[in-house]
């Protein structure tokens, strides 16, 4: 048992190959549809450019919000026992297990001018629904659980005795977190950031329900793909392929980075 593949693993390899084919064949078929001859023109299509820019802009805001809001929660879930932890745990998973359209609808009910929060905001002259803010809120909601889960795993992997050692050596709780907990859980936290970013950048259903489909303000790349496929197939396919390439590069890069980082 030296961990190498052997002929005895034939069945496993076959099933794994089926899985790989299942994932890659449709993506390859899509990429084959890219209008290579007219690619230059499509790359400059305002729909492609604007939606990608909006996606980048919104995720650069939503992912830091996810990290800021999700880290304390992930830490509590990882390192403390408290009443109602199971319930909280289930709540964290909820947005992930619900159809995104439901989550978008819930946000709409909340922030609509007649909704409980929307009416208050309206009184202050703030509109959320069908604005870029709504895009960000939808992304935070859908991406946060992924971050919390990954960061929690990271925090859990830090041996409790190291934290005790740090305290006894005279380091404050905050210093202990920065110097011991965070570096040792970096793998989980970085994975969480990447998963959250991928989920936020790919958010479609809650966004279109809650924020709509307005070029430059709420039409993110996934929304543009959907619209594009209905209007001009080539725009949709080009955009989808760019998203695919970018996601794959980020996921692969992150893995290489994590493997190299000394632990």
């Amino acid at each position: 048992m030296d961990g190498r593949l052997s002929p005895r693993n034939a069945f496993l390899v076959l099933m794994a190959a089926l899985f790989v084919a299942f994932v890659t064949v449709p993506l390859i078929c899509m990429v084959l549809g890219v209008p290579l001859a007219r690619l230059g023109r499509y790359l400059h299509d305002p729909m492609v450019v604007d939606s990608l820019a909006l996606t980048l802009k919104t995720t650069l805001i939503s992912v830091p919000i996810v990290v800021a809001l999700g880290s304390p929660l992930a830490y509590l879930l990882a390192r403390r026992e408290f009443w109602g932890k199971q319930v909280l745990d289930a709540l964290v998973d909820l947005p992930m297990s619900m159809p995104p359209v439901v989550m978008g609808f819930a946000l709409l009910m909340t922030f609509a001018p007649l909704g409980p929060i929307g009416s208050v905001l309206k009184g202050m002259g703030i509109e959320v629904v069908f604005t870029t803010a709504a895009v960000i809120i939808a992304q935070v909601m859908m991406a946060a659980p992924l971050y919390v889960k990954a960061a929690r795993t990271g925090f859990e992997s830090v041996d409790d005795s190291l934290l005790r050692a740090s305290l006894v050596l005279g380091a404050s709780r905050w210093r202990t977190f920065l110097r011991v907990t965070l570096p040792l859980s970096a793998g989980g936290v970085i994975t969480g950031v990447i998963l959250a970013w991928a989920r936020a950048a790919g958010e479609f259903c809650a966004t279109i329900t809650f924020a709509g489909n307005m070029p430059k303000t709420t039409q993110t790349a996934p929304v543009a793909v959907f619209v594009g496929v209905n209007q001009d197939l080539s725009v949709g396919v080009t955009l989808a392929t760019i998203l695919l390439a970018f996601s794959f590069a980020v996921l692969l890069g992150a893995r290489i980075l994590l493997k190299r980082s000394p632990r």
Partner: peptide, 28 residues
């Protein structure tokens, strides 16, 4: 605990795996 200023060799030593020996010693 962080203000008690005691030396403590924990069970299994609990050395920080992400720091060098020197950084471990300097930590406190």
């Amino acid at each position: 605990p962080e203000q008690r200023l005691l030396g403590y060799v924990l069970q299994e030593y609990a050395l920080f795996p992400h720091m060098t020996v020197l950084r471990n010693i300097e930590y406190g």
